[in-house]
Simulated assay, not measured.
Amino acid sequence: MNIAIFAITKNGTELAAKVSRHLINEGHQVRLFRPGRFPGEGEPFNGPVSRIVAEEFYRCQGLIFIMALGIVVRLLAPLIKDKRSDPAVVVMDEKGQFVISTLSGHLGGANELAQDLAGAFQAIPVITTATDVNGLPSVDVLARKYTLVMEPFNAVKQVNAALVNGEMVAFCSEFPLPFPPMQGFKLIPWDKLPITRPPGWLVVITNREISLPHEKTLFLRPRNLIAGIGCRKEIDPEKIKEALLHALKLARRSPTSLRLLATIDLRVQERGLQQVAREMGIPLVSFSREQIQSIFSRVKNLQHSSFVQKRIGVGGVCEPVALLAAAHHARLILPKTSREGVTVALAEESYGWWEQDREVPII
């Protein structure tokens, strides 16, 4: 996590240096800002701290303030936008007695950060989110842990409120995730997904586009689909996007679940592919002909084209690159489809898509 630490007093500056060293040892990237009139570690500033806070608010994933909570509220008020994008904010007093989770406790990870700092400095963590206070799970924490996208997002508050108020929430996952015990959820096996409306809210983890006779449904979309793409040179970006959305429709999968686009290294610089990846906010990865050939020799039943073999040196692109870019627990859910000069195949990861340390060559 990229974290900025701010202190405005001499004692606060000394505590900030200790906090910085702890976080660096934990693997975080840290920048420390202190008033120029106080010696010490970090970057000195002169003038109002509000200017630096405004810059770091949009750059960092976490902000730590060692000062009064009221000052922090006034600094952040003009900057706050949306809990999906606001960074985690934690406030400490300059004696290090309290660590207050202030903003983005669930999605941003401020609650976890506050707990970590409290443990490291023998401080009292101050956590006020209702689900945590009552020892209950929350769907936004679950979504953050397993890289799930919440649809519709405005239902999250209502589901968490139902849990806090003691209402039963039905829960069904297509994938065997290692969930901890979850008080307040009624677990439903995937093959028993209700076809009639159960009372209260229903939370469903799936990448499938499905219709349920249940108005109060929150979908948690895993980012576990990889689209392998082959295309002609200089093809129009719209044709690539149309082919990609057509493939997802054929597979009855949600575009929200796309995690990667993959292609051969001969095509990774194509303007159309790069533009589609940029517009959809998805990384584009590529593989060499040697890597593609290796998976042809390991995986049976991949479609092979003599024409493609003659032109670029391998018997196909979209199917092998989709599998190469996926994690170990993956399978093709849509074989090669062709549409106006673009081929698309879809691979699905059944496990491990939330892990951050993937060795995938992102271009």
Rank of each mutant, 00 (worst) to 15 (best):
G12R: 05
F38V: 06
S104L: 03
E355F: 08
R51N: 14
V268N: 10
H328D: 11
G184W: 07
V276Q: 02
L245N: 13
G119T: 04
T196K: 15
R84V: 14
R259H: 13
E55N: 09
L113I: 03
R358T: 10
A16S: 05
I292D: 10
P35H: 10
P87Y: 02
A327W: 09
R339Q: 15
A170C: 09
G36I: 13
F219M: 12
I229G: 12
A325P: 10
N160A: 09
R289P: 01
F65W: 12
D191P: 01
G184H: 08
F287H: 06
L113Q: 00
W201V: 10
I240D: 12
V342K: 04
T337H: 04
A120T: 06
L187N: 09
G109Q: 05
T102A: 15
D82W: 03
P87V: 05
R289G: 10
W353D: 14
A247M: 08
R267V: 00
W353R: 13
P189V: 10
R232N: 13
S297F: 07
E55Y: 03
R358N: 09
E209T: 15
T263S: 14
V89L: 06
R289K: 14
I292F: 08
S101C: 05
N224M: 14
R252D: 08
E174F: 01
Q115S: 15
V149M: 00
Q115A: 15
V72Q: 04
H214W: 03
